[in-house]
């Protein structure tokens, strides 16, 4: 199978004698050497596999160790307090946690329906020759580094929102009781809503490509039966495809959510980095990852640094749970199909 000139297996096993039958002792020696090499290689690969587990353990352990001072100093209050004061060294994680959850919620509310619609287009409507190019183009969106979304969001998208969507929202909902506080305040451009919208664009490809893959896995006979009794395309998707792929679609959504929760650079650029919880989603806020990215290198004092690491620990635990649930669901649908 190799090109000419490469040593064959026999040469590897018996380097000395090409064509010569070696005596029994050197043969035994060669076999012994091969067996040792085999054991060594197996050991090496197993060590590397365990190394992956060690990385996860190391991440968890170092975060716990680093956040101990803050957790000991503030206890459960760390999770419940909004204050974030480097001068008096009083820290609470509520504002970043709130910002992380709200931006992710906005992102999912927008990206899930759009992602599912694109997946439906790609599997049911799109002509065959267009499926691959469009699929690849959507996946390229996932390949663009997050800092690019950040710089684009800051210089292009935020000013655009400031001039168009935000004044519109303020004017439209200004007189409606609950919504007026949700869309209150001057249109800054940057803020929670902008971060949520950018996140929506970023997680869209993940949701789209996984939904497309699980939609494709629906047995054609099920869909053909539904079409055969006169269902429209939408009815087939609504009543056959979605129920069949529900677990996989939810898995894909959770995977996107995991991305949105941990996304750093894009959010850091556009969220405004304000340590407070505002009722208005037009106001600046902060997320866990944006707080760490902005403040970690400038943090003075052990308690400040430790509080930021504790934020990292909270983020890691939240995303771990979400991602583990996502993987579990995707495994379930894989098992059913495979």
């Amino acid at each position: 199978m190799g090109p000419a000139g490469r040593p064959s297996v026999v040469d590897v096993a018996f380097p000395s004698g090409a064509g010569v039958i070696p005596d029994a002792s050197s043969r035994a020696k060669a076999i012994q050497r091969l067996r040792l090499g085999d054991i060594a290689f197996r050991f090496l690969t197993k060590t590397a596999a365990i190394g992956v587990l060690i990385i996860l353990g190391g991440v968890l352990f170092s975060l716990i160790e680093g956040s101990l001072p803050a957790l000991q100093a503030f206890g459960i209050d760390f999770l419940l307090e909004q204050r974030w004061n480097p001068v008096t060294e009083k820290f609470g994680a509520l504002a970043p946690i709130y910002g992380t959850l709200v931006t992710s919620l906005i992102a999912m509310a927008i990206a899930v329906p759009i992602g599912l619609l694109i997946a439906m287009f790609l599997t049911e409507l799109c002509p065959m020759w267009l499926r691959r190019p469009i699929g690849i183009a959507i996946e390229l969106l996932a390949g663009i580094p997050s800092i690019i979304y950040g710089i684009w969001g800051l210089f292009v998208f935020a000013p655009f929102l400031q001039d168009t969507l935000q004044p519109f929202l303020i004017a439209t909902f200004g007189n409606i009781p609950v919504l007026s506080s949700l869309f209150a305040g001057p249109p800054y451009g940057i803020g929670v809503l902008t971060a949520g919208l950018i996140l929506a664009i970023m997680v869209l490809p993940f949701i789209t490509s996984i939904s497309r893959d699980v939609f494709d896995a629906v047995p054609p006979v099920l869909k053909e039966a539904a079409y055969g009794v006169g269902c429209t395309t939408w009815e087939v998707v609504r009543n056959v495809v979605l129920p069949y792929t529900r677990v996989g679609v939810i898995g894909g959504i959770m995977l996107g959510l995991g991305r949105a929760l941990g996304e750093t650079m894009a959010v850091t650029f556009v969220i405004g980095n304000a340590h407070k919880i505002s009722a208005s989603i037009l106001a600046p806020g902060t997320t866990i990852s944006a707080t760490i990215a902005n403040e970690f290198t400038e943090a003075v004092g052990d308690l400040y640094t430790s509080s930021l690491i504790a934020l990292g620990l909270i983020l890691f635990v939240i995303t771990f749970i979400v991602l583990a649930a996502a993987r579990y669901m995707l495994l379930r649908i894989e098992r059913r199909i495979g």
């Binding site: 596999a49 992956v52 991440v59 991602l323 993987r327």
Partner: peptide, 28 residues
Amino acid sequence: RLSTVVRFINDILLSAPSIVVGLFIYEV
């Protein structure tokens, strides 16, 4: 069992927030 566990953990590491990796290396 080792492979099953590593596969699961690896898939999580694949989408884990990269800023946490930064914190980890800072610590160690």
